[in-house]
Each structure stands twice: as C-alpha cells, then as structure tokens.
Design a protein around this nucleic acid. Structure first.
Lengths: 226, 226
DNA sequence: ATTACACATCGACGCCCATCGAACTATGCA
DNA sequence: TGCATAGTTCGATGGGCGTCGATGTGTAAT
C-alpha cells in the first residue's frame, strides 16, 4: 500500500460531479469565469470557488486575473489528454449546452479591447503569429522573436518608438467571447492602427465593433500564411 | 450540468485509495486474487470484495473463476491506458513491493498443470500461438483456427481422436506464477505429450516440475517463429 | 465616495460511503 | 463426510467532504 496516493487524489478530484462538470466545460479549451463554471457545475458560486481552489492546488487548472474577472482554464494539454481518454473510456456522449458569449455577431467577430484587436480575428492573428514562430507565448508572457521583428517591420510598423515606451511591447489578453488569448500591449495597439491605416478596417462610431472590409479581412487572414 | 456523470463515476472509482491501489497492482498485467489485492490495498478482504464488485460493475476489471480462486484482472488495454496516463500526470513514482508468486525457479519456469504445460514456457507457447493466428482467444473461449489446425498436424499431433473426446479441445488456463493464460484442454495435453515424445522435456518424479533440455527449450522457443 | 459585481473565506449542516465484524456460500482436500 | 480455505453478503459505525448562507475583499463604473 502507500504506493499511489497520487492517482487516488487525481481520481478524487475528477470524481466529484461538480468538478467533473467544471473540467468537462473547460475541455473546450476556453477559459471560463467562476460564475459561468458554477452554472455548468450546477452548484453555487461558493462551492465552485472551493472546487476551483482544489483543482488549482493540484495544478489541473490555471487562473488568470483580468480586471474583476478571473478566468479559469485547464493547466496544459496533458490534463486535457487525460480527460479526453477518460471520456473515451466512459463513452463520450452528451454535449455542452450552456454556451456563454456575446450575442452580437459583429462584436464576436472583431472589436477593440482598449486599444487593440479582440474577437475571432484578433485571436486568429495571435495564433497565426505563434504558429509562424514570430511570437512566443510562455504562461502570461509574450515575446517577439527575431523573425517576428523582421515580419513586423515588413508590415510597416516601426518598432523603435514602441520599445521606448514604458508599456510592455507584447502582452497577452484573454478574450471574453472566444476565451482565447490575443495580442495586447503596444504592439497589439500598433497592429490595429496599421489596419486602420491600410484601410482594412474601420472603427464603428459608438460601438466597440471593428468593421473589416471583405478585402481587408482577406488580407488579414493571409497576412501570416503568405 | 448532467452532461458527464460518466467521467465523474470513473473518477470516483479510481479516487478511493483502496481501489487505486487495487488498480495499480493490476496494472502489472497480472491477474491477482482478492486476498492478494486486499494486501495491496491495505484493507480487509470484505472491503476488497465490495470494491471489486464495484470495479467489475463498471467493467474496469474482469473476473475469472478458477477452482476456489477468483482471479481479477484489468478489463482491457484501454483501462490500462487510462491508468497509465493518469499515473503519468500524477508523476509516476513508487513501485510495487509485494510480488506474489512461487519461490521455486524451476516451478516458475515450467510445470504441469493437471496434464498440460504451465509456467513461463507454457505462457510463451500460448502467446506465440495467438500471435501467429493459430488460436484465437475471446474472453474465456479459445478456438483453433484453420492455420492452427495445419500447424498442429505438422507438429505431429493427430486431431481426430481429440475432437471426438468430450473434453474441450482448447481451453485457457490461468497461471498462478506468471498470472497469464496458457493453453489447457485436450490440445494442451497433447502438446505436452508430444514434447515428452520428442525428448524435449521430462517429468521430474515426485514434483510438478517439467524439465526441458537445453535443446528442447530452444526448439520450443522457435517452434512458432520458424 | 457610493454602488454594484465577482470571487474568496468561514462555519455549520447533512449525507454518502468506506470500513470492518459476523454470518453465509462454495470449492478443494483427506 | 468433515475440515479448511476463498470469497461474498449483510448490518452498523464513523469520518470525510460537498453543500450553502453569511461575511469579507478587491475591482470597475458613476
């Protein structure tokens, strides 16, 4: 005996229905707030909070503070993998019902977050940059690589004034609609400004919506791919 | 909510320390008795019994009655895979200590089980036959395939008298030393007789040990491979 | 500053379930 | 036929933990 308290602890954590629901909800890859998770779990926020604390103590989930919200997400792919395999064993059936997010399709697509691009297009841009190796994401920190600097310069963004600013050049920002990270910081701001400049997008007055033209959206989508 | 009671149930089953120990012990691939598992789990036999009942109800383990013993083993590879991945996540550390089995090396190597070959060599023979597609193992049943019939005939075993007998031609038998299946039934008996006949092995008087000659063991190991 | 919202903490309640003793069943051995 | 061993079932006990109400802390908006 006393050879595997680890696996037992893991099982206990997953074994509670409320926590299982929480983990299942997070398996979508999205980061959710405690309140949303409490709906998924079917328990009160207090109970959810204590569950999240335990899950975080076991390093199954990670927490990101963003303003007065706290977004929770699975710690890494390995956790997701284990959950997937467990669901496979338990025969994957049933799907998520409560789908959080904004109702306005345009807001969901593209909008400003402070001064940078958020929404699906913002997320897409960020993920393309990561995939191309132009930026590296490590936990909360995001850094621009050498190839990234070249790419940014080619796109017509002057890095010199940006690096002088006290604002961090790169920062990741969590999306409240798709709940994935996108690029913030002064570079994120510079990207959005450049999009305006090129006529790819316009800001809609009195709203946070960023309206991309058909051609502008095409350009953005193929920006990195090219 | 109510979208994943499955995964929660699974977690609960694995979550109990006693059951986790049981599953960990079975992860070796060996089949163990309830009493042995109670030692591994650190609880009494009664408690172990109730645990085994639950694990079996969830189809995580399978049970094989053999005489007055009941051997328990993991249900299939998928269960083992999930447990492996969970151990990986919980950082695999610590190892099994209680290693059940006979102390006599010769008995472990090869011995008669009623009238057929048991021990490591018996297991090896059976697994080779399965790998070559000569026999098919399905749960408890073992059947000789077409290619198997040819192979057996080539080896010098006449199937006609065997198939007339009321005894089942093929039967799987669980090994008490290595805890894996080997071939029993009238065919298993015929194999052992043939080994004697070919001078590959001799029965040691007053013991269950089957002594293979160096050459005989070589022949046996390469019997299927050739 | 005040209000509102998100989340954490504390404390108490209640229930589920693991545990073991005792009795029962089944198989093997002499 | 009797004894021993392996395992299950039943019932009672106890502890651990999930649950929620109330309260406290931090952040954003007006």
């Amino acid at each position: 005996m006393k050879e595997g308290p680890d696996i037992a602890l893991l099982g206990t954590l997953i074994g509670d229905p409320a926590r299982a629901n929480i983990l299942t909800a997070l398996l979508s890859g999205k980061a959710l707030t405690a309140t949303e998770l409490s709906n998924e779990a079917g328990v009160t926020v207090q109970t959810t909070s204590s569950h999240l604390k335990k899950l975080e103590a076991a390093a199954l989930i990670r927490q990101r503070k963003q303003g007065r919200h706290r977004y929770f997400a699975l710690a890494d792919d390995e956790v997701a993998g284990v959950l997937e395999s467990m669901m496979g064993l338990a025969e994957k059936r049933g799907l998520l019902r409560s789908r959080p997010g904004p109702k306005d399709e345009a807001l969901r697509r593209a909008r400003v977050c402070y001064n940078h691009l958020a929404g699906e297009l913002g997320v897409r841009l960020f993920e393309d940059l990561v995939a191309a190796g132009h930026v590296v994401e490590q936990e909360e920190d995001v850094t621009l690589t050498q190839s990234g600097k070249i790419f940014v310069a080619d796109f017509g963004i002057d890095l010199k004034p940006l690096s002088k600013s006290r604002r961090p050049l790169c920062k990741s920002c969590l999306d409240w609609s798709s709940r994935r990270t996108h690029l913030a910081g002064s570079l994120g701001s510079a990207f959005l400004d450049r999009f305006y400049e090129l006529g790819w997008a316009k800001r809609i007055e009195g709203s946070r919506v960023v309206a991309f033209s058909a051609k502008g959206e095409q350009h953005l989508l193929q920006l990195i791919r090219s």
